[in-house]
Computed example of a mutant assay.
Amino acid sequence: MTLIARLLPLLLLTAAAPAKDAAPAPGFFEALRAADLRLATIAYRLTTANAPLCDRLQPQVGMPIHALTQYGPGTRDAAAAAFGFESMIGVEGVVAGGPADRAGVVANDSLAAIGDLVLPGLPAANVPENAASRDVAEAAIADTPLRQVLRLTVLRRGQRQSIAVTPVTGCRSRFEILLGSGLDASADGSVVQIGERFFDGYTDAEIAVVVSHELAHNILRHRARLDSAKINRGLLAELGRNGRLIRETEDQADLLGIYLLANAGYDPMSAPSFWRSKGGMVDGGLFRSRTHASSKARADTLEAVARSIAANPVRPIIPPVVATRDVPLR
Rank of each mutant, 00 (worst) to 15 (best):
R174F: 14
E214V: 04
I141P: 12
L235M: 13
V127I: 15
R172D: 01
Q193S: 15
E129M: 15
R241N: 09
E129V: 08
V105Y: 07
L215T: 01
A100E: 08
L236S: 07
R157Y: 02
F198C: 10
P123F: 12
R147Q: 06
A131S: 13
A100N: 02
V192A: 02
G234H: 06
Y202P: 08
R197D: 04
P145H: 10
A112Y: 11
I219G: 00
E129N: 10
Q148C: 00
G201H: 08
A112M: 11
S190R: 13
G182F: 00
R241W: 13
R147V: 02
R221W: 09
Q161Y: 02
T144M: 12
R172Q: 03
A139K: 09
P99M: 11
R157S: 13
A112T: 05
N126T: 12
V165R: 08
L215G: 02
V149E: 14
V136N: 03
D143C: 08
A107I: 01
L178A: 14
V209W: 04
A100C: 14
N242T: 11
R174Y: 09
A224F: 09
V191N: 05
S228M: 10
N242L: 15
S186V: 06
R147M: 10
V168G: 03
E138W: 05
G115H: 09
G170D: 00
R174G: 07
P145M: 14
L179H: 00
A185Q: 09
L178W: 08
L152H: 05
S228Q: 13
N218V: 00
G243K: 06
G240W: 14
A205H: 14
I219P: 00
I231T: 09
D109N: 11
A107M: 04
V136I: 10
A229D: 10
S181Q: 12
H213M: 04
S186M: 11
N242R: 13
V127H: 04
L152C: 06
E129R: 09
A132C: 06
R221P: 00
T203N: 11
I231G: 12
R102D: 12
I163S: 03
A103G: 11
E206R: 07
S212C: 04
A112K: 05
A140K: 09
G243N: 04
A140N: 02
H213C: 00
A113S: 07
A113V: 01
L235W: 14
D184A: 15
A125H: 05
R102E: 15
V165L: 05
L152I: 09
S181P: 01
I207A: 14
V209N: 02
L119H: 03
S173D: 03
G104Y: 03
R225H: 01
N130M: 04
A187L: 07
E238K: 12
L226H: 06
D101C: 10
P145G: 11
S228H: 14
A103P: 03
D135Y: 13
D227C: 10
T203Y: 13
V118C: 08
R172G: 00
P128H: 13
L179A: 07
D109Q: 11
